[in-house]
């Protein structure tokens, strides 16, 4: 090292330096941090729940939770807010995963809320059930008396999320107050709250998109098939490719075409763009992610609505 200022190391430092391999790789360190947070949730809260969207980040979350409590089962259920507009492959995958992990799955059914007249669908070509997820999520959390909801959000995803805490306090209305967040120092996480309030917990805050892919690859974690390149009928809207599906009405000028595509993120079919790609293996996906010059949320129509779309949704209780 080029450091002329370096002081003569103490005996202790020398001892510590003698074996240089007491250093974790960055993926192992991220894993250790996430496992610590997940265990902290199980220790500090009475009734945690893991918010499961079916995407790669929540699949990573279940993998880390499984490691955290091994050989015991994950000591909390999964909660999936199902808009009814998911990729069918994602639902099949979800059910198999739940079976494998031996955990309980709770489904918040958006369609049911609509049928009961509690919610109304958006109208128009770009209608999405994204906003409808918020009331369903909040009601399911309340119904289950959950006091901590674990989520797979990452700080690198979006600028409002860059300021999110690991332990994120929510008031009795489930709202996020970005100006009044609790400081988090060292490894000390304050999960104290009043009755009726809850926490959102983000154990993979410090992972980037590429970290997630590298880790899923190294760990051989199975993923839904839509993440790999496949043939699909799509159409283009506002520069984004959308999968042809029964829930998204097309404008007359939006022509269907068949292409090799894959999902970079996975949400509803109505608002998740697919991506022209021939990456049909994990290696190719990593290669693609590493060289990609646009953000993964760039293909999410829900984030394109305004510059502060995410910040505004988070304040209302989105995760």
């Amino acid at each position: 090292m080029v450091n002329p200022n370096e002081k003569i190391p103490s005996v202790e430092q020398k001892m510590a330096n003698k074996k240089t391999d007491y250093q974790l790789s960055y993926l192992k360190e991220l894993e250790a941090e996430s496992i610590f947070i997940i265990r902290e949730v199980a220790a500090q809260f009475e009734k945690p729940v893991l918010m499961f969207s079916g995407g790669k980040d929540s699949i990573l979350m279940t993998h880390l939770a499984m490691k955290a409590f091994y050989p015991a089962r994950i000591p909390f259920p999964l909660l999936h807010v199902d808009t009814g507009h998911n990729f069918p492959e994602a639902i099949t995958f979800r059910d198999e995963l739940v079976e494998r992990l031996g955990v309980k799955l709770i489904v918040g059914d958006v369609q049911k809320y609509i049928d009961e007249g509690k919610l109304v669908d958006e109208k128009g070509y770009s209608a999405s059930r994204n906003a409808l997820q918020i009331p369903v999520l909040l009601e399911e959390l309340e119904k289950g008396k959950f006091d901590a909801a674990l989520g797979g959000a990452r700080r690198d995803e979006e600028k409002a999320r860059a300021k999110e805490r690991f332990f994120s306090h929510r008031d009795e209305f489930g709202q996020w107050d970005p100006k009044n967040q609790r400081p988090e120092l060292w490894n000390l996480f304050n999960g104290k709250k009043n009755f009726g309030e809850h926490f959102r917990i983000f154990p993979i805050s410090n992972w980037t998109e590429l970290d997630v892919w590298q880790y899923l690859h190294v760990e051989n974690v199975p993923l839904p098939s839509v993440y790999y390149a496949h043939k699909r009928v799509v159409f283009e809207r506002d520069g984004v490719l959308l999968a042809h599906n029964e829930f998204t009405p097309r404008r007359p000028e939006e022509e269907l075409k068949e292409m090799m595509v894959r999902c970079r993120t996975m949400g509803d079919m109505t608002c998740t763009g697919v991506w022209e790609s021939d990456a049909d293996t994990m290696e190719k996906i990593i290669q693609e992610v590493a060289t990609t010059r646009t953000t993964e949320r760039g293909a999410r129509a829900d984030d394109k609505r305004s510059e502060t779309a995410m910040e505004d949704r988070k304040k209302k209780g989105y995760f």
């Binding site: 250093q23 974790l24 790789s25 960055y26 993926l27 360190e29 991220l30 590429l210 590298q214 190294v218 990593i286 290669q287 992610v289 590493a290 060289t291």
Partner: peptide
């Protein structure tokens, strides 16, 4: 900077 890491690089990459 645009090359993905190989498995041995991952092992040696620190945080």
């Amino acid at each position: 900077y645009l090359k993905p890491k190989t498995n041995s690089q991952i092992k040696n990459t620190e945080l």
